[in-house]
């Protein structure tokens, strides 16, 4: 295989012993064979479209004349768009509501389940996990009914709360999405954190108890630091997910016609460029900006928390 023969000399500089090289190549071959199919799929459906998107971001579609190439035009058009500040504010509000609340609920419930490992705890874990089975557009449809006063079982409460005939609006959407996000996402993370908590050696907890630590102290000073890595992981994954929020506001808008802007979130704005205006350049530019923000934040969080540091933290 072409790739295998290319690997050999490179490795040779690291490990000069020829027999060792041969062994390494032999070891690497099945790995490459194993990866080959995935790499093809990754290239065709992942890398190539992403690179094409990057290329598109520099192609400007103008109202008159043919497409032109510009390094900055699409980016400056997108940043200057009158809808971007509003959409960014919407997403930011949603993240500020959803993330802290979800983390607190997930950690709190996982701790509670871990503290008393009874049959009730197992049931709680299961019950918390069930709403996670309904995700994405299906969840959006479900919540659409919950938040439409005319058909919702809690309709009278909603009407009383707002004093209006509709509850869904651009302004109430961060709350609605936070509720949806927690109900759909929390269960899965609770299971993950519970698993992490059970992996903490019994001896540590026992010695803490012997030293007279309270349950609260154990949770705060022992369990939390030990599973910090998992919480950081939840945070990074949720951040990326939250920044790209698209399906939920889109589906909710189809039910609450005329109440929710079609460009409520940043990703919807990118979609609008491509579908409303056939302006793929701007859509690509905004998507890249969004990617940069997500990657930037993830790197920041990982650095600040020493996520990849091996050994004692």
């Amino acid at each position: 295989m072409a790739i295998d023969t290319q690997v050999a000399p490179t490795v040779a500089t690291v490990a000069p012993e020829p027999r060792g090289v041969a062994r390494r190549v032999r070891r690497a071959t099945p790995a490459w064979r194993f990866l080959a199919l995935y790499l093809v799929v990754l290239t065709v459906f992942g890398v190539a479209p992403a690179l094409y998107g990057l290329y598109q971001a520099f192609i400007v579609t103008s109202a008159v004349g043919g497409p032109t190439f510009s390094l900055v035009q699409n980016f400056s058009d997108v940043i200057g768009d009158y809808r971007l500040p509003t959409a960014s504010l919407h997403v930011l509000l949603y993240l500020l509501l959803w993330l802290p609340l979800e983390l607190v609920i997930v950690f709190g419930l996982a701790l509670a389940i871990d503290a008393k490992r009874t049959r009730f705890a197992a049931l709680t874990r299961f019950v918390a996990y069930v709403p996670g089975a309904v995700t994405g557009s299906a969840a959006a449809l479900l919540w659409l009914f919950m938040f439409s006063p005319a058909v919702s079982p809690i309709g009278p409460i909603l009407s009383a709360l707002t004093g209006k005939q509709t509850f869904l609006s651009d302004q109430s959407l961060p709350i609605v999405l936070a509720v949806m996000g927690i109900s759909a996402g929390a269960g899965g993370w609770i299971v993950v954190l519970y698993g992490a908590l059970t992996a903490i050696p019994k001896e540590i907890i026992e010695s803490a108890v012997l030293d007279g630590a309270s349950a609260w102290q154990i949770a705060r000073l022992i369990k939390l630091p030990l599973i910090r890595g998992y919480i950081v992981f939840i945070l990074v994954v949720s951040l990326a997910q939250g920044f790209q929020v698209f399906v939920e506001p889109t589906v909710l808008a189809t039910g609450a016609t005329g109440q929710i802007s079609t460009t409520w979130s940043i990703n919807q704005l990118a979609y609008s460029y491509a579908t409303d205006q056939s302006n793929y350049g701007r859509a690509a530019a905004l998507s890249i900006l969004l990617l940069l923000v997500c990657v930037g934040l993830a790197v920041l969080i990982l650095k600040k928390t020493n996520f990849y540091q091996v050994g004692e933290r």
Binding site: I3, Q6, V7, P9, A48, L51, Y52
Partner: peptide
Amino acid sequence: RTSKAAIAIAIGAFLAVGTVG
């Protein structure tokens, strides 16, 4: 060399898609 080859393949695919576009 491997990563160079991967990049070459990726660029090739990218150009191929680009020309179709």
